[in-house]
Computed example of a mutant assay.
Amino acid sequence: MNLVLAKAAMDFCIAFGVIIGGSLMAAVGSVLVSGSAATAMYDTAMRLKIWAIVVAIGGTIDPVRVIEYNMQEGHLSPVAQQIMFIGFAFLGAHMGTELIRWICRESL
Rank of each mutant, 00 (worst) to 15 (best):
M1R: 07
N2Q: 12
L3F: 13
L3T: 15
L3K: 13
L3P: 11
V4D: 13
L5M: 14
L5R: 11
A6K: 11
A6C: 09
A6H: 08
A8V: 06
A8H: 03
A8I: 04
A8P: 02
M10G: 14
M10W: 04
M10S: 15
D11V: 06
F12E: 02
F12P: 01
C13R: 04
C13D: 06
I14Q: 03
A15Y: 02
A15P: 03
V18C: 08
I19E: 00
G21C: 06
G21Y: 05
G22N: 06
S23Y: 02
S23I: 03
S23N: 07
M25R: 11
M25K: 10
M25W: 10
A26V: 04
A26W: 00
V28P: 06
V31N: 14
V31G: 10
V33E: 15
V33S: 15
G35I: 06
A37V: 11
T39N: 14
T39Y: 10
T39G: 14
T39L: 12
A40R: 00
M41N: 06
M41P: 05
T44S: 13
M46W: 10
M46E: 13
L48G: 02
K49G: 03
I50Y: 12
A52M: 03
I53S: 03
I53R: 01
I53V: 15
A56F: 01
G58H: 04
G58V: 07
I61L: 08
D62C: 05
D62Q: 07
D62P: 03
P63W: 01
R65P: 10
V66T: 11
I67F: 00
Y69G: 06
Q72R: 11
G74L: 06
S77I: 13
V79K: 00
V79H: 00
A80Y: 09
A80H: 08
Q81W: 05
M84R: 07
I86L: 12
I86W: 04
G87Y: 03
F88A: 03
L91T: 07
G92K: 01
A93I: 03
A93V: 05
H94S: 09
M95W: 08
T97S: 09
L99H: 05
I100V: 14
I100D: 00
R101D: 05
W102Q: 10
W102I: 05
C104I: 02
C104R: 01
R105E: 09
E106Y: 01
S107E: 13
L108V: 14
L108D: 07
L108N: 11
L108H: 08
